[in-house]
Amino acid sequence: MEAFLFYFFFALAVGGAIGVVVSKSPVGSLLFMVTTLFAISGEFVLLEAHFLAAVQVIVYAGAIMVLFLFVIMLLNLGHEYQQDLKIGVFSVAWMAAVSVMAGLVGWGLRGDPGFAASPAGAQEIEAALAQYGAVGAIAQPLYTTYVVPFEITGILLLVAIVGALVLAKRNA
């Protein structure tokens, strides 16, 4: 059952990603992207990242994609259905080269004992989940080991808000 769900979400994520690239209308691309994000959220649940699965749906599929949709509708781009794919020799060659390289790296790593089933990290995560719960398991390192990056993230968000306001203001 778990393996079936895993490959179902796998196919959904890859299919949605291809849809994002080939879809003619921007709104269609956006809906394919939401499909991909939901599928990735399903993968997160299967990988014992429950809190991240919830955040993926709320923040990514909920907030960021609505922001994109808002801009598409604000700029009135939903009606241009002309195909804007520009497939050149360079991009196809690049794609083939990277795919071959990724395949070779994956083939080399295949069966590596470091990727054995139920390794130390999974046990550590399960212990943290049992002790602190889904949110506490992330909050524990976030507010102790990573508290300085966390505060810097707050400054980053403040700068992003001010920057977005200054850039999008009508007559600066």
Binding site: L47, F51, P119, E124, I125
Partner: peptide
């Protein structure tokens, strides 16, 4: 899943 919860952070 290999090296602990830091990846999720």
């Amino acid at each position: 899943n290999l090296w602990g919860i830091d990846g999720q952070v």
